[in-house]
Amino acid sequence: MANKPMTKTQLVAALSEEMGADKKTAGAALDGIISLITKEVGGGGAVTLPGVGKIYCRERPARTVRNPATGEQMQKDADKVVKMTIAKALKDSVNG
């Protein structure tokens, strides 16, 4: 079974070690990257992280959905959903 996902604290510690910087600098860099991705994808754009994948926003049309508890059908408005396509390099490194 897989390990637990890496927490933000663990990610910041690993990033600071990789960068050769202190944890405060690494945390600020991570927060900056997250902020940029959020702004770009939230505005309808896309962000490509080389070697990792592409994060983008896709619009879903209005549709009819069913409540599984009651069986009642209702109309769900159009909305947006965030998607991520994984890069081939990452897939190959995991499988190879």
Rank of each mutant, 00 (worst) to 15 (best):
residue 40 E to C: 08
residue 90 L to P: 09
residue 31 D to R: 04
residue 71 G to Q: 07
residue 56 Y to M: 11
residue 89 A to M: 09
residue 46 A to K: 15
residue 74 M to D: 00
residue 74 M to E: 00
residue 45 G to C: 01
residue 18 E to R: 15
residue 93 S to W: 00
residue 90 L to I: 02
residue 23 K to E: 12
residue 45 G to S: 06
residue 43 G to N: 09
residue 94 V to T: 05
residue 71 G to W: 08
residue 59 E to V: 07
residue 21 A to F: 05
residue 33 I to K: 03
residue 19 M to A: 13
residue 34 I to N: 12
residue 56 Y to E: 13
residue 67 N to L: 08
residue 96 G to S: 08
residue 7 T to D: 03
residue 61 P to K: 15
residue 90 L to C: 09
residue 88 K to C: 06
residue 44 G to W: 01
residue 1 M to C: 00
residue 18 E to F: 04
residue 21 A to K: 15
residue 92 D to M: 02
residue 29 A to H: 01
residue 26 A to S: 10
residue 59 E to P: 08
residue 22 D to I: 09
residue 17 E to P: 01
residue 77 D to W: 00
residue 46 A to C: 06
residue 9 T to I: 13
residue 48 T to D: 12
residue 33 I to T: 12
residue 53 G to A: 05
residue 71 G to A: 06
residue 61 P to S: 13
residue 61 P to M: 02
residue 16 S to R: 07
residue 42 G to M: 05
residue 11 L to D: 02
residue 21 A to V: 12
residue 88 K to D: 14
residue 64 T to R: 13
residue 76 K to I: 02
residue 43 G to F: 02
residue 32 G to N: 08
residue 53 G to M: 03
residue 4 K to M: 08
residue 33 I to Q: 01
residue 72 E to K: 14
residue 40 E to M: 04
residue 74 M to P: 00
residue 62 A to Q: 10
residue 55 I to A: 10
residue 74 M to R: 11
residue 67 N to F: 08
residue 66 R to N: 02
residue 5 P to S: 11
residue 59 E to K: 14
residue 68 P to R: 05
residue 6 M to L: 15
residue 82 V to C: 11
residue 37 I to K: 05
residue 55 I to R: 04
residue 28 A to S: 09
residue 25 T to H: 10
residue 6 M to D: 01
residue 85 T to N: 12
residue 31 D to C: 04
residue 89 A to F: 03
residue 89 A to K: 14
residue 23 K to D: 05
residue 65 V to S: 12
residue 73 Q to E: 13
residue 85 T to M: 09
residue 40 E to I: 11
residue 46 A to M: 09
residue 35 S to D: 14
residue 95 N to I: 00
residue 30 L to C: 03
residue 32 G to M: 04
residue 33 I to N: 03
residue 7 T to G: 04
residue 43 G to P: 03
residue 62 A to E: 14
residue 39 K to H: 06
residue 89 A to P: 07
residue 67 N to A: 05
residue 81 V to K: 15
residue 47 V to Y: 04
residue 21 A to T: 11
residue 69 A to N: 10
residue 95 N to K: 06
residue 15 L to V: 12
residue 37 I to R: 01
residue 29 A to M: 11
residue 30 L to S: 02
residue 54 K to Y: 02
residue 36 L to T: 11
residue 6 M to Q: 10
residue 49 L to K: 07
residue 88 K to N: 13
residue 29 A to Y: 01
residue 32 G to E: 07
residue 40 E to T: 15
residue 78 A to E: 05
residue 50 P to S: 14
residue 5 P to L: 09
residue 48 T to E: 15
residue 41 V to L: 07
residue 19 M to V: 02
residue 57 C to W: 00
residue 76 K to F: 05
residue 64 T to W: 10
residue 35 S to L: 08
residue 28 A to K: 12
residue 88 K to T: 14
residue 57 C to R: 13
residue 80 K to Q: 12
residue 96 G to I: 02
residue 11 L to G: 05
residue 53 G to N: 06
residue 39 K to P: 01
residue 64 T to F: 06
residue 81 V to S: 14
residue 23 K to V: 01
residue 24 K to F: 02
residue 90 L to S: 10
residue 6 M to T: 15
residue 52 V to A: 12
residue 96 G to L: 03
residue 75 Q to I: 01
residue 64 T to D: 10
residue 61 P to W: 00
